[in-house]
Design a protein around this nucleic acid. Structure first.
Lengths: 122, 122
DNA sequence: CCGTATCCTATAAGATACTG
DNA sequence: CAGTATCTTATAGGATACGG
C-alpha cells in the first residue's frame, strides 16, 4: 500500500483515502453500492439488471471483493432454483453515506469537462 | 459515460458519483490533491518528492488531466531554469473537502481487510 | 528544472460459452 | 438462477533515456 510518512503530507488523511480507493476502485463498485442501498436485499439477477453493461463475470468478482472487504454480505439459500441475496453491511452503509458529498460535488459541475484549456504561460 | 435511468436507482446520485470517479480515478490523483492542499503552490519537483513512487511521466500526465478537469491550475514562469507552479482551483479545493468523509471512513477500519470470510450458506 | 518520447508489461475488464 | 471457465483486448501505468 502507498503509505506516506512525510511532515508535509497529512498521512492519516491520505492513509484513509487510498484504502478507500482500493475498496471502491472497481469500475462498477459504486454503482453496485447504490443499487444495494435502494433496497435492503438484492439478488444477483437484480443487480445485473440494475447495473446495465456489467457482465456476469465482473459482477460476480466485484461482489466477491466487496464481500471480502466487509461492505457487502452474501447469503445463499440452499434451494432449487438457487437464491442468493446481497445486502450492505453496516460498514458498507456508512461507506455509502461517506460517498454522498462526493456525489454532490459531481452533480455540481457542467457535465462535460476535460477541456484542453488555454496554456497560461506567465 | 455510464449514465443510468431506472426508477430504482437514484440517477442524480449515481451520475454525480461516476463523474467523480473519472476525475479522481488515476492511481495517484488523490495523493496529488492532498499534496496540493498542504500548501498553496507546489512545483513539479516538489510533487514528485511528495508522492514517492510516482514516475515523472505519470505525474505529468495526471497533472495535465487534472488541469483539464478544472481542479488544478498550472502556471509556467518563463524563466531559466524553468519554474512551474501547480495549485488547486476553487473546484479542486471543494473536491478535496468532499473527500474528507471518505478519508474518515477509511481511517476507521482495521487496516488490513480483504479476508476470505467464512462461506455462510443458509 | 520540467518535462517528452519510447517501449514494455500487468491487470482489469469484455465476450462468449457452459454448468450445478 | 447464479454463477465458472476461457480467451482476448484495451489501457494504465512502469522503466528508461533524452531534450529545451
Amino acid at each position: 500500500m502507498t503509505t506516506l510518512n512525510r511532515p508535509d503530507t497529512p498521512d492519516a488523511h491520505i492513509c484513509g483515502i487510498d484504502t478507500v480507493m482500493e475498496v471502491i476502485g472497481g469500475k462498477w463498485k459504486v454503482l453496485i453500492l447504490w443499487a444495494l442501498e435502494t433496497q435492503p436485499r438484492r439478488r444477483f439477477g437484480e443487480l445485473r439488471r440494475l447495473v446495465p453493461g456489467i457482465t456476469e463475470k465482473v459482477l460476480a468478482s466485484h461482489l466477491r471483493e466487496m464481500e471480502a472487504d466487509g461492505i457487502v454480505r452474501r447469503v445463499a439459500y440452499d434451494e432449487v432454483p438457487p437464491r442468493v441475496e446481497y445486502s450492505l453491511t453496516e460498514d458498507g452503509a456508512r461507506l455509502n453515506d461517506a460517498l454522498e458529498p462526493l456525489a454532490v460535488w459531481g452533480r455540481g459541475r457542467p457535465a462535460g469537462r476535460r477541456a484542453p484549456s488555454p496554456p497560461p504561460t506567465v
